[in-house]
Write a protein that binds this DNA or RNA. Structure first.
Lengths: 222, 222
DNA sequence: TGTCAACTGTCAGTGGCTGTCATTAGCCTC
DNA sequence: GAGGCTAATGACAGCCACTGACAGTTGACA
């Protein structure tokens, strides 16, 4: 019980430096903006060399996504843990909702949840970060498509449905992220609500005619 | 009739330099890779200063998307031109398909269509370009959501359906782009086919249970 | 033809990022 | 607990994308 998996002082210090860098980076990013923050400022706050920063992170961007990454793998695990009888989209939906409820604790171990929320909003409003975010999400979609395919016992390269389902689901998730970032309520609760209500809109949005069930007559110019 | 909209020598030269820069950039990008191509190489091929390059393009990335931009606005116009009686998703679908048929000519004016196709594939396979591409597409989605809303006489900020529909549609388009880039047939025809077949899968992928309607018995390995 | 404005080139500088090499510091053995 | 091994770090030099400032050049237009 003492030969394996002991943290070790070295490992501990690494984790400490890494966390300190993430905290310093996010704090600086969210207060003075991503572009206006230099890597030199970050390393100065933690008192390490610039070279060390780039040994922990592939780039300035990466520091901004360190916490996001935790949330993402948390979500993937949630999907994996869904009971097999749930239909794909049902499983995805429940997994997101459940994730938002439990993600807090894992994050608080590294940074205050509130800082994470500000970081999320920063990503949505900074072009360079948004671009990186979208690319990451595409990777996530592929990973989840495979999870879904496995759940259903399908081959992801033969049956298009897993990827299509994920594309649809991912599209809506991205939309909610965008609207949340553009809104004013940056709480987890607001995120939850938005997600639920927009997922509910997928059905209605795909119906052939949007005007069959309401009494509007289409007057005026067209 | 001669006071306005005359090209003018100055305007002409500008267009010429810009096109030359785009051509040189794409040629270099597609032959030796995006990252391995420096701006200095591009400007040397066209014989202008580096500073001039950055007056035409906001960054190295931008040069790679100059032609894409044409294709995109071409597509937006196609959507705008769809008859009002078509349902939103039907209009979008027909617009994409029609765009792929007619985009060739507009592009050939600047670069060979074949080079454009290689550029498209380059974007899909270069992380930095893919990220930029996804961000651009999100902007496109917002623009099209507004077009759709207008078509249907809805307020895009009140009714979620236009944006949700675009998120779904955009998600599938992105998926087809990705698969096309990962495949081996880089023709326009292949793109058309992929697009059509994946749009057809949206319905099936959203049905509750994927195993109810087919006669396959699900025997193990497939 | 001369004046104005647009376009371009040159130069210096910032910031992200990398390779290299010497130095430090945890770890492990004897 | 001294010494060797190796991971982690720091210091330095350098590349490249990108920008601001200023000067030179060239269409446009009276």
């Amino acid at each position: 019980m003492d030969t394996a998996s002991r943290p070790g002082l070295r490992e501990l210090k690494k984790q400490r430096t890494r966390d300190a860098l993430v905290r310093a980076a996010l704090e600086l990013f969210t207060t003075q903006g991503y572009e206006r923050t230099t890597v030199d400022e970050i390393v100065e706050a933690v008192d390490v060399s610039q070279r060390t920063f780039f040994r922990y992170f592939a780039g300035k961007e990466d520091a901004a996504f360190a916490v996001q990454e935790m949330a993402e793998s948390h979500f993937v695990e949630a999907v994996r843990g869904r009971p097999a009888h749930e239909a794909p989209l049902e499983a995805l939906r429940r997994a997101v909702m459940a994730s938002w409820d439990t993600i807090g604790e894992a994050i608080e171990a590294v940074i205050p949840l509130e800082l994470h929320m500000r970081a999320f909003q920063l990503i949505e409003s900074t072009p360079a970060l948004l671009a990186a975010h979208l690319r990451r999400q595409e990777g996530l979609e592929e990973e989840l498509a495979r999870v879904i395919a496995e759940r259903e016992g399908l081959d992801v390269d033969t049956d298009p449905r897993p990827r299509v389902a994920m594309a649809v689901f991912g599209g809506v998730m991205r939309l909610t992220g965008r609207l949340w970032g553009a809104g004013e309520d940056f709480s987890v609760a607001a995120m939850r609500e938005l997600t639920a209500s927009y997922l509910d809109q997928v059905g209605p949005a795909l119906t052939e005619n949007w005007h069959t069930d309401d009494g509007n007559d289409r007057t005026d110019t067209e």
